[in-house]
Write a protein that binds this DNA or RNA. Structure first.
Lengths: 302, 302
DNA sequence: CAGCGCAATATCCTCAAGCATATCAGTCAT
DNA sequence: ATGACTGATATGCTTGAGGATATTGCGCTG
């Protein structure tokens, strides 16, 4: 190696203009400078490369074979530099990059496909990596930085140190076995279920839902008789499908299209009969996550 | 665009080391500098890009998504820069590049294949573009810069302003029709042909050969009777093949393998019975041409 | 040979890159 | 609370990048 030449934007541009004009004077004019410093720049470049790039003669200048060859690389380098700058700016702006998204299985049916479609359309530079998991696992992954964004139901209890944002609200409905006498009703009162056997959400795994079910039933004047408990919505659903119990479940679970379970709307309008879907992320989430989040909330709450 | 940052080798290296160490102090040590200027370099880079590349926290530093993305491009840019420098140096050294080589048809049989093979082996970076043409055309192309190197026979008269270098010498032999009484001889004296009809080289197109034939015959005590004239060696050859004349031709033309023509060695050792093959180029030929030329002369005159 | 057009050289200026040392200011674990 | 990490700031130095103007030197051409 000879001297360690810095192939800056300016220097490469100067070289290219000289190679194009084949004339230092005109090149200097095009570059908005005077001829002598341009000569010196090219000399510096030649010294740095240890290579003669131009053959000087009266009436102008002609690139040597090396000079000719270098025009190609100089252009490439300029393009590569501005492309790199452009790219890092786009990543910083959240227009490009990877976002690792976690979700609980229940959400995959109704919300995810549309979200992915909208992302591909409006933020085509973002690559979304999906990861399905249990709520506690997902929040832990968010904390550790393994995941950037997670979609959960009612995560408030898990996320004191995280940022969560509701993007949709679902009604809770009565979930009845298909052969239950009320299964075909267009709507029932919660009190109609006071004598039924219930499968109830586990209070530690699903604290919000468990609490809501208790409060909603209390408002309706009874305490649900717990025949079974499950720490997962699919478990609740399965119990109902088995025909052994009824339950109170977000009516979106209807999307499972299981014929053994009928969802019957409840006449009550209690806030306890609503459940929120939330997106959760770290407070220091990067711009791509925020863009994605913005898109989600815009889509679901227009 | 924000400030116009120069992505120099040094700066990119500094960024990469910090990204690797995730620690300004250690990175500075690895870079052989102290910590504060390194901090400033990274700040300058961040300002120039308009992008935060690292998240500073106690106990070290972590790249942001943008920083992570930029490591890839930074490495690419460094590679591209040194590759470009390496390449232009190789071109300047004549180890890489294009050489446009002209030749007259006669040479294609014996010399060219070996030359191309040797070039591919010893100067694998050189691409040789071949162009066949008449001697005057070739020298003109050399002059105009359309061609870098030309292989000719006895070009001395054409090339006062060019550089020519002999790389092989061939004997001139008698070229006789296959049914000529002397065609089977192992060797004859030039004087044996004094009564023959000759086809002679044109004095303007092939001045050297024409002159040599005249002088050689004069030395042998006669003036050749010109039955025909040709301005091209293949024309001379064809005349002999027709059976109408004899001629004096470089014995390499034997390589045409035409059964109608017999080449019979001449006993004389006159310098007029030798003809040189030369490589011709401009005085300002670049290094690749000189390398190729060096290879040729080394191969043919060991 | 004189003049013109070209690039190179001489001389000077300014400012940012690039480095140093000394110090400050957070954050965290003891 | 405090000492031991971090990185950031303050301040100063040297150098080269990058530019200017004025002049020189060279090769071509009328």
């Amino acid at each position: 190696m000879l001297e360690d030449i810095a192939l800056t934007k300016r220097l490469l541009e100067q070289f290219l203009v000289v190679a194009d004009e084949r004339h230092f004077g005109r090149a200097a004019e095009r570059l908005g400078m005077s001829q002598p410093p341009l000569s010196q720049s090219i000399q510096r470049l030649e010294r740095g490369l240890g290579v003669r790039l131009f053959e000087r003669g009266s009436g102008g200048v002609t690139p040597t074979a090396a000079g000719e060859a270098f025009t190609v690389d100089a252009r490439r380098l300029l393009d590569a530099q501005s492309a790199a700058i452009e790219r890092v700016r786009r990543v910083a702006a959240g227009l490009e990059g990877d976002v690792r998204v976690g979700y609980v299985s229940i959400l995959s049916h109704h919300y995810l496909p549309g979200l992915l479609r909208a992302t591909a359309k409006e933020l085509p530079g973002l690559r979304v990596r999906l990861h399905q998991g249990a709520p506690t696992t997902l929040t832990e992954m968010i904390r550790s930085g393994t995941l950037d964004l997670a979609f959960l139901r009612d995560p408030s209890s898990l996320t004191s140190d995280l940022v969560s944002r509701d993007f949709a609200v679902e009604r809770i409905a009565a979930a009845l076995p298909y052969d239950h006498p009320l299964a075909a009703s267009a709507g029932i009162a919660l009190a109609d279920l006071r004598e039924e056997d219930f499968v109830l959400p586990d209070a530690t795994a699903l604290p919000v839902l468990a609490h809501q079910v208790q409060l909603a039933c209390r408002e309706a004047g009874f305490t649900p008789r717990a025949r079974a408990v499950s720490d997962d919505l699919t478990g609740l659903f399965s119990y109902v499908a088995s025909g052994l119990c009824v339950s109170l479940l977000p009516e979106r679970l209807r999307d499972f299209h299981a014929p053994e379970v009928a969802f019957v709307p409840l006449r009550e309008t209690s806030p306890y009969l609503e459940t929120a879907l939330s997106a959760v992320h770290r407070p220091d989430a990067d711009a791509a996550v925020l863009r994605l989040l913005e898109l989600i909330t815009r889509r679901t709450t227009p």
